[in-house]
Write a protein that binds this DNA or RNA. Structure first.
Length: 677
RNA sequence: GGCGAGAUAGCUCAGUUGGUUAGAGCGCGUGAUUCAUAAUCACGAGGUCCGGGGUUCAACCCCCCGUCUCGCUACCA
């Protein structure tokens, strides 16, 4: 690897519409923090950058729902999360935010540079517009009835009741959430970054020059590049965000994906007047810590932006992690299925390192991983307490008992002593090497091996026995045990900063420097060590049970919520009702639509005619099983082309709470075309 | 449907360019020990390396066909 002068570490900007949870921590912030602390201990010139991502539609929606301003929402979560990170010991040099003035300046300037260089394509397209409120509507601002499940409050991009992804034109009776009026299509101008222009350059840069990136990262980049890149809009019609700094662009802001990564730059500007040194000097090594959902932005889009601007450096690595599950279920903010950092800090005061350890030990480095409270407890009790805490305790207790807390002289060493002393340096190098390759689980394990080494050494040397026969020998043994202890306080520092600070206080050790790790004379003879307290304490079953119960309660209330019936709908006139042509029909033929997962192409006899209907039921029915079945259809729905096939009508299905679809059938066979009323 | 990643001991994971008896930690069992928070140390049991083909003297590893999980993407009237 090239020898860099300095490091710029970025951690994905958390979106300021919710609190931080263990998934964020395990995926991004714990590894970024360990890495940053490691570099600092090596004396490297390093800055670690993070902040809140505060723009985008979901925040405006949440604000609207609560009847407050977007600024109030982002203030709430920005300060909550900033404090939680601080309390948790995440060592950012700055935790900034994208609603800052300096970010507005930076982002505008960035856009303007690209604009002036002619790097954008201008294009008009049709978008939904609210004539009453006089604004364009993001998909999220359009609500209507989901054609799939009948939920009246489905959004223009997704129905949250049935999870179907939609487009605004899909909604039945669409209306704007701003004014309630019916949206109309209107032309709007936007700027696009022509990613296709950078395709061959990106191919060389990533596929050619960065073969060392993690397989998940490399694979996903390759997938995107192989499929071919498309121009991507960098602006939106919205009033929350950085205004597009171009004449006549009123009501347009930078699209949040364009805006957010620039937040790394503005945060650096806020931190130091020397920011350009970190962003524009090829001697700087930039690393992005992110989760897998962010790979394409950080590996393809942001680098293309930086390249287009021209004066910036590019990331040297993007060690993206997979996702963390919680008790076998996907973590979900909306379903409240999470362990929230700010709650953990309250429930387990002083136990930051336990969570840091547990999340590092089961970090989703190569595939999704599962966090369970039982494992959390076991990691604490069987590893932190039993192996690390216990070793430190026995070394210090013996030293206090035998030598009144003074480090004894190391006398003549035998072969075992020498190999133990040599092993310290070996383990230190193992930790270094693992960290430098972003293998955090492995690094942590090697660090713990040092405590194991200490335990084994004491068990083999048996100073508590030897003291009766050969007190001189015990001095040597305890000296070595104390060198291991001191080394632990340095080597474990990136992983367990709170506990190691405590330990260093007990042994009166100064600033931990990485270069000192591996040395065998960190504590000189005569050096005073204090009486230890407990480095880690056992976590009892009750504390764990409380957390498990909390989750069970969440699960229960979620189930209750999903089992309850869909809310009733607005009354309709009989006239409205009678305009619907609902009738019985029989399926004559059924086949899967090629290259789709959910679609069946059905030929049905409606009594009036034989027609084709395409229906999204392939996951619920096999074609051969439904031929001959009598069903109910809406016969006068406007025809629509689906996957190139004209579909005339819609089959009525009942949907269960788990999303299972069941045909609505007449109780006994009736004529095809019998009206349903 | 397309693409990417993954599947190895009860659990969480290693396994280097194919090369003898597939490893570690935790858990489990047995023994030793008592300085230490009933902690520690030693030993042991546990594997159809997702399934099926193929290439090879030799496959956990390479190729082909499947299955399952996660993500991206298309699709749902």
């Amino acid at each position: 690897m090239k020898n860099y002068k300095r490091h710029l570490i970025t951690s994905a900007l958390p979106y300021a519409n919710g609190p931080i949870h263990i998934g964020h921590l395990a995926g991004v912030y714990v590894p970024s923090d360990i890495y940053t602390r490691y570099l600092r201990m090596k004396g490297a010139d390093v800055i670690s950058i993070c902040g809140s991502d505060e723009h985008g539609v979901p925040i405006t929606l949440k604000a609207r729902k609560e009847g407050v301003t977007p600024q109030e929402i982002v203030d709430r979560y920005h300060f909550l999360n900033k404090k939680a990170f601080e309390d948790f010991g995440i060592a950012f040099d700055i935790y900034s935010r994208t609603s800052n003035k300096i970010h507005y300046e930076t982002a505008s300037q960035f856009f303007r540079t690209l604009y002036d260089k002619g790097e954008f394509i201008e294009k008009t397209s049709e978008q939904y517009y609210d004539e009453e409120a006089k604004c364009f509507l993001a998909d999220r601002y359009i609500v209507g009835t989901c054609p799939h499940c009948g939920n009246e409050n489905a959004y223009g991009d997704q129905c949250e009741k049935c999870g179907t992804s939609l487009s605004p034109s899909d909604l039945i009776n669409p209306h704007s959430t701003v004014s309630g009026s019916k949206p109309v299509l209107r032309e709007t101008l936007h700027w696009y970054l022509p990613l296709d222009k950078y395709e061959s350059w990106l191919k060389k840069w990533i596929l050619g020059d960065h073969k060392e990136w993690k397989t998940n990262v490399y694979g996903q980049c390759k997938s995107w590049l192989d499929q071919g890149l498309q121009p991507r809009a960098v602006s939106r019609d919205l009033d929350w965000g950085v205004p597009v700094p171009v004449e006549g662009a009123d009501g347009k802001v930078l699209y949040v994906w364009f805006d957010a990564p620039i937040g790394y730059i503005s945060a650096t500007r806020e931190l130091t007047p020397d920011w350009e040194k970190y962003w524009k000097d090829s001697e700087t090594r930039m690393i992005h810590f992110i989760g897998k959902d962010n790979i394409v932005f950080h590996c393809i889009i942001f680098p293309a932006m930086l390249k287009a601007e021209g004066s910036y450096i590019l990331p040297d690595n993007v060690p993206a992690n997979e996702f963390l599950n919680l008790e076998s279920d996907k973590i979900s903010t909306s379903r409240n299925w999470a362990v929230w950092l700010h709650e953990y800090l309250e429930d387990f005061p002083g136990k930051q390192d336990v969570l840091r350890y547990s999340l590092c030990a089961s970090m989703p480095e190569t595939k999704d991983n599962d966090f369970t409270w039982k494992e959390f407890q076991a990691r604490n009790n069987n590893e932190l307490v039993a192996i690390l805490g216990n070793f430190v305790n026995r070394a210090l207790v013996l030293t206090n008992n035998y030598y009144d807390g003074r480090v004894p002289e190391r006398g003549r060493t035998d072969q075992t002593d020498e190999s133990v002393l040599a092993e310290i340096a070996v383990l230190k190098n193992n930790v270094s090497e693992s960290l430098e390759n972003f293998r955090f689980r492995e690094a942590l394990k090697e660090a713990m091996n040092l405590a194991r080494l200490g335990n084994k050494y004491l068990a083999d040397a048996e100073p508590w026995k030897v003291i009766k026969t050969d007190p001189e020998r015990v001095k040597t043994i305890m000296n070595i045990a104390l060198q291991i202890t001191a080394n632990l306080s340095v080597i474990c520092e990136p992983f367990l900063p709170f506990s190691m600070a405590k330990l260093r206080q007990w042994i009166n050790y100064g600033k931990p420097m990485w270069e000192d790790a591996g040395k065998t004379d960190l504590l000189k003879p005569g050096h005073k060590v204090n009486k230890p307290e407990l480095l880690f304490e056992k976590i009892e079953d009750e504390a764990i049970q409380r957390q498990v119960d909390k989750l069970l309660a969440t699960k229960k209330s979620n189930e209750a919520a999903s089992a309850s019936a869909v809310p009733g709908k607005q009354p309709v006139t009989f006239d409205d009702f009678s305009r619907m042509d609902i009738r019985t029909a029989t399926i004559l033929e059924a086949e899967k639509v090629p290259k789709t997962t959910k679609l069946l192409k059905l030929k049905i006899d409606t009594g009036l005619d034989v027609r084709t209907i395409v229906s999204g039921i392939a996951e619920h029915y096999k074609p051969e099983d439904i031929i001959g079945k009598q069903i109910s259809i809406v016969a006068n729905l406007e025809p629509r082309k689906i996957k190139g096939i004209e579909s005339k009508g819609m089959i009525l299905m009942a949907e269960d709470k788990d999303g299972k679809l069941v045909m609505v059938q007449p109780e006994t066979k009736v004529n095809n075309g019998s009206t349903i009323k």
